[in-house]
């Protein structure tokens, strides 16, 4: 049984059909890519599955459970973590606090622990801090632990976002354009980081990318989305040689890099 199964999902923004009859199945541990030109609806697919938008039609089953229309925090607690294309870090929290925050639903100390320094609170906060450091280390940004997000170099900020998403060892990790705006060297380093993370935590990964290099290095399977519609699906090689994909990308330079 797939870890994530989306069937016949559609979504309208007013009169715009942003996603149309979308289907997806991801097996545990698999890395699936989602490519497509700007405005194709890729981010919308992420937002629909993670519960930010409720799909107009369709069904989403995650880990055997129907999560269609559930609140984002509930879906996330089931083991689906994500990053954001536009990077959503919290302005007034340190990097370490960011990563600890992602463990919110793991804390069991309750109100007593929140209001008083109970031994349970002290222990759990310390344990989570250790987890958070380990996650920062995995993405090579532990030296920024006490920094504010505004003080981070761009690439480090992207990694912090990933460390925050990965700290809970999610079953499924959504990455929205992890290499956008990076130099080719930074991109290669990012590929290595994601690969290492996948080897250690073995999550399933669903990855939006514009650069075919990233997709072909990392993904087992790739979907191509155009105008909210999947026009092709297959291995990276199959997709690269698919005439429909080439046509959709005609004139787009990003795909070459």
């Amino acid at each position: 049984m797939p870890l994530l199964e989306v069937s016949n999902m559609s979504h309208n923004f007013g009169g715009l059909r942003a996603v149309n009859e979308y289907n997806l199945a991801i097996e545990p541990g698999q890395i699936v890519g989602l490519i497509g030109p700007n405005g194709a609806g890729k981010t919308t697919v992420f937002n629909l599955i993670t519960g930010i938008y409720r799909p107009t039609e369709g069904r989403i089953v995650f880990n055997g459970q129907d999560v269609t229309g559930h609140a984002p925090n509930r879906i996330a607690s089931l083991g689906l973590a994500r990053t954001f294309q536009e990077m959503r870090l919290w302005r007034h929290m340190t990097v370490l606090e960011h990563v600890k925050m992602a463990c919110y639903s793991k804390f069991t100390y309750g109100l007593a622990g929140a209001f008083l320094q109970t031994p349970k609170r002290i222990r759990e906060e310390a344990e989570v801090e250790e987890l958070a450091f380990a996650s920062l280390k995995m993405f090579g940004v532990e030296q920024f632990a006490s920094h504010w997000p505004t003080d981070l170099p761009y690439g480090a900020a992207r990694r912090v976002e990933m460390a925050r998403a990965a700290v809970t060892k999610p079953k499924l990790l959504f990455l929205d354009e992890p290499t956008v705006g990076m130099t080719p060297e930074e991109m290669l380093a990012m590929i290595e980081v994601v690969r290492k993370m996948h080897e250690t935590l073995k999550p399933a990964v669903f990855l939006i990318e514009h650069r075919l290099k990233v997709v072909s290095e990392l993904c087992h399977r790739v979907q191509t989305l155009v105008f909210g519609q999947v026009i092709a699906e297959g291995t990276p090689e199959e997709i690269q040689n698919n005439p429909k994909v080439i046509e959709a990308y005609l004139g787009e330079e990003k795909v070459v890099a």
């Binding site: 993670t50 519960g51 930010i52 609140a71 984002p72 925090n73 996330a76 607690s77 973590a81 994500r82 954001f84 959503r88 870090l89 919290w90 302005r91 007034h92 929290m93 606090e97 600890k100 925050m101 992602a102 463990c103 919110y104 639903s105 804390f107 100390y109 622990g113 929140a114 209001f115 008083l116 320094q117 609170r121 906060e125 989570v128 925050r164 998403a165 809970t168």
Partner: peptide, 29 residues
């Protein structure tokens, strides 16, 4: 002070600074 320095209390900052990110990180806003 205990409350606002706990991760439970820090969730308030997360909700204030970016509610969507807070929800995606399992915070029940």
């Amino acid at each position: 002070n205990n409350f606002v320095t706990s991760t439970m209390g820090k969730a308030l900052n997360a909700v204030r600074d970016d509610e969507i990110a807070a929800e995606a990180m399992t915070v029940d806003t």
